[in-house]
């Protein structure tokens, strides 16, 4: 009987012990649904995304929503104060969340958020990078890999061009940014394992 939900996409990590597992899950789902809808709205605005087959649009969103949310909500992880702000607006320290059962994923999220924020990207750069995260041709279940790959390459070229223009003296930024992609995959896998543990409980 797990009593805490340590994901910041929740309003609070505290779970009402009188609620059933199903009710807890419904409440959590209600909490993260608006953020997922925002990811879908963002995807719709990526030039070319709506031209992909409906099947591939759904597959990309299913596989990449978590990673997009990690990028969009990196600022919830305050590296300096070692706190996490939940959607309800309250901050919780790492120690508190650890005591509630948070594991390695929490540390990895802090590491990722710190490195991403330290790149000092503009809103436009971050937005284009987020599009690259979402449009990845190697996600499972893609039926028209060539179309997704072509769109991904266009988006990568756009990010490179923008980052090179905005940071002419920092040639490594684009490389560092691309290296965030495998980091996100790794976080996604860890997150799936945590979800499995949650469902099993």
């Amino acid at each position: 009987n797990r009593m805490h939900l340590v994901c910041p996409m929740n309003t609070s990590p505290h779970v009402n012990p009188h609620k059933s597992g199903h009710e807890v899950w419904e409440e959590f789902s209600h909490s993260f649904t608006p953020a997922v809808r925002e990811v879908v709205e963002f995807a719709k605005k990526i030039p070319g995304f709506r031209d992909l087959s409906q099947h591939d649009q759904v597959s990309l969103l299913k596989a990449g929503t978590f990673e997009v949310l990690v990028v969009r909500f990196a600022s919830l992880f305050d590296v300096k104060d070692r706190t996490v702000t939940f959607l309800g607006g309250k901050k919780y320290s790492v120690d508190t969340l650890r005591a509630m059962g948070a594991g390695d994923l929490l540390n990895s999220m802090f590491d990722f958020s710190e490195k991403l924020i330290n790149l000092g990207l503009s809103e436009e750069e971050m937005s284009l990078f987020t599009a690259v995260v979402l449009v990845s041709a190697d996600r499972s279940g893609i039926e028209n890999v060539n179309s997704v790959e072509a769109l991904q390459e266009t988006l990568i070229r756009a990010v490179r061009s923008l980052v090179t223009k905005n940071h002419p003296n920092e040639s490594a930024i684009f490389t560092k940014l691309l290296l965030k992609l495998p980091d996100l995959r790794s976080l996604n896998n860890m997150h799936s394992e945590e979800l499995l543990a949650f469902k099993v409980h």
């Binding site: 299913k62 596989a63 499995l196």
Partner: peptide
Amino acid sequence: FSDPASNLGLEDIIRKALMGNLEERPE
């Protein structure tokens, strides 16, 4: 647990959000 998105109910939310505009369009 090969498809965490489906287990989360994500696919439903995604499909509805993707198709939402079509569904809301008046006949």
